[in-house]
Amino acid sequence: MLLWINGPFGGGKTQTAHEIQRRLPGSVVCDPEHAGFGLRRMLPPDLRGDFQDLTSWRQGVVEVLDLALGRHDGVVIVPMTVTDPRYFGETVGRLRELGHDVRHFTLLAERGTVVRRLRERGLGHLLGFVAGKNAGLRRESWAVQKLDHCLERLSEPEFAEHLWTDHSTVPKTADRIAVLAGLTLRPNTEGALRTKLRQAGVGLKHIRFD
């Protein structure tokens, strides 16, 4: 089974994916952003745009995930924003055509909630202390620019199943996805402080500087 977790940038996809992986034995997180940023870095700076526009990225994602699903016994978890219906069909749709059990979920939240998460994720708290409360948000300017488009497009029926997360913690969102996908997660016995520290670590590992 493949769990594709969609949503706006800063919507909690990566944190939720790693929460499920932590509590689901044998599962793995396969992040298509790694391939995308690698392809982007290969191009001269003036040719670098949205890597999802590259056919090689879309085809490569399908090829790699098809391989992972065919040879890995556990659940494969993919945190990736895809808002273009054609690109959605060429990735999620294509994997389904290949016979894979793909469960797609879109994490949604009110605009203000996502902006707050963008401000806080990764080094947000530290940047806010050193450089002012909007420093983290400036670092996420590209994500903010795309936010309204993402929220509008991803609210469409074709991007269901939708999960609203404004009043849900990451562990609770992971629990909801697991129930809907028919999976059983290990109980979440982690304390609040440990959860915050671990999530901060996940955020730091996924900071993009290009």
Rank of each mutant, 00 (worst) to 15 (best):
E90Y: 11
H100S: 15
V82L: 15
R58H: 03
L98P: 09
F105D: 03
V62P: 11
G112A: 12
T55K: 08
H104D: 01
A68S: 06
R71C: 04
D101H: 14
R94G: 08
T81C: 15
G49I: 06
D53L: 03
G70N: 03
G70Q: 03
V78D: 05
V64G: 05
A109K: 12
G93H: 07
L123S: 13
L107I: 01
G99Y: 08
R71F: 12
G74H: 01
G49K: 05
L65R: 00
V92E: 03
V78W: 00
G112M: 10
P85Y: 07
H72S: 08
R71V: 13
S56C: 02
W57A: 00
L69A: 10
F105Y: 15
L107Q: 05
L98N: 08
T55M: 09
M80D: 14
D84E: 11
G89E: 15
L118M: 14
T113G: 09
R111T: 10
F105E: 05
F51C: 09
L107Y: 00
V64R: 00
L95R: 12
D101S: 13
I77G: 07
Q59N: 04
L65A: 03
S56M: 07
G70T: 05
V78P: 04
V114F: 11
L107R: 04
T81A: 13
R48G: 09
H104R: 00
G74M: 02
Q52Y: 08
G60A: 07
M80Y: 14
L54M: 13
T81L: 15
T106L: 11
V61E: 02
A68N: 04
V115E: 14
L108K: 06
D53C: 01
G122L: 07
E63S: 13
E110K: 12
V82H: 03
L54V: 01
R71L: 08
R119Q: 12
V75D: 01
Q52R: 08
T91M: 15
W57G: 03
R117N: 05
R71A: 01
V102E: 01
V92W: 00
R86V: 15
P85W: 10
V75T: 14
P85K: 11
V114R: 10
W57E: 05
T91C: 07
S56V: 11
R111I: 06
F88Y: 14
A109R: 13
L67A: 10
